[in-house]
Design a protein around this nucleic acid. Structure first.
Lengths: 345, 345
DNA sequence: CGCCTTTACTTAACCGTTTCAGTGGTTTTA
DNA sequence: TAAAACCACTGAAACGGTTAAGTAAAGGCG
């Protein structure tokens, strides 16, 4: 199974490999006669020639490859499990990349891992990293020489481009919405709050909204664990066992909200009658579950698209400075929230 | 931002590049003194040397790259949207691949696309293709010279390895289960049935079970569309508009079942009280939704793992023949099915 | 001691491309 | 009509590695 190389084409067409290369890449400022072009093209077609992109990258110094790193919380546990958000994002990234002639090198990340290795090993042209925390070791990335875009990260480093949302404001909006609907005692259900992580921002937003309305942030209204469906159910457990009386909950991820809702419903708590829920992300599932989820909507597809676009822009114009995109957030009303008249509580 | 190459290391250590290469790759039968080894290793560490895998593949003729092709039903619509099954599978593939030192080259596929191109371009060592139909043009893959494994495909071609399940039997099992629960009038909700496609097998299984029980397969009990949450809801629409009286439904994909269930519940049909539902795949979501889904369970993680393993085996032993793995199917009982006493209907 | 191994390297070819720097031949310009 | 410019190519180096073959020195053996 001998691969046919440019040499074979050159021989077949009776020209040099350089000529074949020029013909195939339509080099600007190079002139190849129509006749030769024709001959080369025919030879290539006849031999079924496909250029070897690896070899090409070796000399051209770029690979048309984008590295994508997605968090894989637990080693055995795959990333899409923990949050479908990643799957949707990945899809958008893949689509945009391919549209622009790039392929994706996919890797799950664990915290102990050297973020830079894939990039260096394979010589990717750019890297998209999803959800890192400040404090993780990103030093190797800083000097790697290819554009790096951080999606949903509060790492601030002039070496990295960022795509994000205003998590704090989104959370405030969600909480405020519940308050406007007449709720006073509002639970906060979330993955663990790490400093400068996404969840800590959302917690801030929650607190701000509560305080602005003159409502207390009670410790026992906080349900903190991991961003997973399981923990959502555990939180529901805690809710009923404590005999908690929050009439609403702001949950910082849809997947978590789904688990929470399910756990509650199974224990006889009705949604939204007994408790209203607002999620975050507007994952595709949010409209699929029952009851469908009122949630803070972000354009996940756009996020993925921008991430790739950002790499592309940086590649095109290496001297342009750091780029920062903030996507708008809106509140999508569905069926998991109910108005509560003042007297009811 | 000059990359440090093996030459730099060689210079730094005062040896030839060959020596560096030998040291780094612990070549069997080659002897390098402990002292030199030490010197090279130190030089490499000092310079922060990372081998360029692309260059390596050029001479070593393998890339440690596995190409993964996942169907992307509609161009704009990302693959995980259409079915979370793919996301879970992909995760498992990624995990197993990386465990074995392989990276993943990910690509969505559309029908019009040349399956072989990525493989040829990038020189991947193996290809995993998910969900192709017989009749699609796979010729280019046959002569590509790297192992190809088809996941969930009824293409029979000695050139390809396969990983699959007994779709027909799974469907029979599900339908039989509903029959045993006392249901006589059972709907079949599915994506479109293409010859020799997965859904056609599941349809066969459904028919077999019905016939074995002496029950008719009624045309108006068939709800055929696409494998998507939307169509599930549409099917629910049809169900209530027709005033259908099926007391149970076998739905050929969990995602579809979720849409169906949701559509029904929103129209006041209760599950499982009014209608029982059995899904297929046991996607992670099946246990997350409410009510949780009774479904035909397959080990998706295992499927992904086997796909990679299959490539690895074929690479190790190129002369071994075609491999075929069939994974077992079981029925997972949850909350979407209810027994129906004979008189009730 | 001379010959054969073994050890510990080095040399150089090669993998498949790209691309810079020619090279003849023809055409244009001064 | 000689010099300059242009055209249509070719040669060869370079990209960063691997590896077969070669070599010089040391060690073993009769």
């Amino acid at each position: 199974m001998k691969r046919v190389s440019i040499k074979d084409v050159a021989r077949e067409a009776g020209v040099s490999t350089a000529t074949v290369s020029y013909v195939l890449n339509r080099h600007p400022g190079e002139s190849i006669s129509a006749e030769t072009t024709q001959r080369v093209l025919e030879a290539a077609a006849r031999l079924n020639y496909v250029p070897n992109l690896n070899a090409r990258s070796l000399s051209s110094r770029h690979t048309n490859l984008i590295g994508v790193l997605i968090p894989q919380t637990e080693p055995g546990k795959a990333f899409v499990f923990s949050n479908p958000f990643y799957g949707e994002l990945l899809s958008a990234i893949e689509y945009t990349a391919r549209e622009n002639g790039y392929h994706l090198l996919l890797s799950g990340t664990r915290e102990d891992q050297n973020y830079a290795s894939i990039a260096q090993n394979r010589g990717v042209d750019g890297i998209v990293i999803v959800g890192t925390y400040p404090g993780e070791n990103l030093d190797a990335l800083r000097t790697i020489g290819v554009p790096v875009v951080l999606v949903d990260s509060y790492v601030t480093d002039s070496a990295f481009h960022t795509i994000g949302i205003r998590d704090r404001e989104g959370a405030r909006m969600a909480t405020q919405y519940l308050i406007e609907k007449g709720h006073r005692d509002i639970a906060f259900v979330s993955g663990s709050i790490r400093e400068n992580g996404v969840n800590s921002k959302r917690y801030q937003g929650y607190c701000e909204a509560m305080q602005a309305a003159g409502l207390p942030v009670r410790q026992d209204a906080l349900y903190l664990g991991t961003v997973s469906h399981e923990f959502g159910q555990q939180a529901a457990d805690m809710y009923v066992q404590r005999g908690a009386k929050q009439t609403a909950a702001f949950v910082t991820a849809d997947i978590l909200a789904m688990g929470f809702a399910k756990g509650l419903m199974e224990r006889g708590v009705s949604i939204p009658k007994d408790i209203s829920i607002v999620g975050f992300d507007d994952v595709y599932l949010a409209q699929m579950c029952y009851p469908s989820l009122t949630t803070v909507h972000q354009d996940i597809a756009q996020k993925g698209k921008l991430a790739v676009q950002c790499i592309l822009d940086a590649l095109e114009n290496p001297n342009a400075g750091r780029m920062e995109h903030i996507l708008p957030l809106t509140l999508t009303e569905r069926d998991s929230v109910e108005e509560r008249s003042a007297g009811e509580c």
